[in-house]
């Protein structure tokens, strides 16, 4: 059975990835920080009706001991697709008032965690058939497209996350693993807000389609949800 591991799976895009992969008959390792809390109610309901295909796992991606522990407890599992979806928006003060503690937390989750998760789960991916590692990035992480004056911490984190993906494409190429940086578009989630033009199912379906057709030739690329190449 094809298997996907998703971080930040209790809400927004992550929860929709779980829904859609579940509906497609995949086995889903759905990871979130607080699997017992109210924030994971929808995810637990989904898992409860999935015939055990969807399992919920405690994972704070900034807690590297937890990442290692989960990798160890799943050591016999092959993972076809791993989606580094967990992310935060970070501080958005004006330039001149940057909150560096929160900036550091943003980088820990958006940049360091995807690398850590890749290090911990490269073996599981290499043992699978599809071998796709996708990091959910953002168009706002494109240095080439940035003209704006907003969200320096978020933009910086996503540009750095793209470099992590690019580095991983080189590092994991010899294991046959395809690494993608994917922009889901501007989506109606808690993070994207109500004014976003894209609904969650449409974005997730589009991102899944890119993952489904990814080959080694695409490794190290940065795609918009509509399949177009984004500049770095």
């Amino acid at each position: 059975m094809e298997t996907v591991l998703i971080t930040g799976a209790n809400r927004g895009l992550g929860l929709e990835f779980v829904r859609q992969y579940n509906a497609a008959g995949w086995r889903v390792f759905a990871c979130c920080r607080e699997p017992t809390g109210a924030a994971a109610r929808d995810l637990n309901m989904l898992a409860g009706t999935s015939g055990r295909r969807v399992t919920v796992h405690r994972l704070d991606v900034a807690n590297h001991a937890q990442v290692d522990q989960l990798a160890l407890s799943l050591k016999r599992e092959a993972i076809d697709v791993l989606i580094n979806n967990a992310g935060v928006q970070g501080p958005n003060e004006d330039f001149g008032k940057t909150d560096y503690k929160r900036f550091a937390q943003t980088l820990a989750i958006n940049v360091l965690a995807p690398m850590k998760v890749a290090e911990a789960f490269a073996g599981h991916l290499a043992a699978s058939r599809r071998k796709v590692l996708a990091t959910i990035s953002s168009r706002m992480g494109s240095i080439g497209l940035t003209t704006g004056d907003t969200a320096i911490a978020y933009r910086t984190s996503k540009a750095a996350a793209n470099m992590v993906a690019k580095n991983l494409a080189g590092l994991l190429g010899p294991l046959g693993i395809t690494v993608l940086a994917l922009s889901p578009g501007w989506v109606k989630t808690d993070m994207g807000g109500a004014n976003a033009p894209l609904d969650v199912p449409t974005s997730v379906a589009a991102v899944r389609a890119i993952v489904a057709r990814a080959t080694a030739a695409e490794s190290g690329k940065f795609f918009h949800y509509d399949g177009t190449d984004l500049p770095w």
Binding site: I143, I152, A160, N162
Partner: peptide, 15 residues
């Protein structure tokens, strides 16, 4: 990765 972050920082600051 950290240097790529600096380049984005510079681009954002320029805006």
């Amino acid at each position: 990765t950290t240097k790529a972050g600096i380049n984005m920082l510079a681009k954002s600051m320029s805006g």
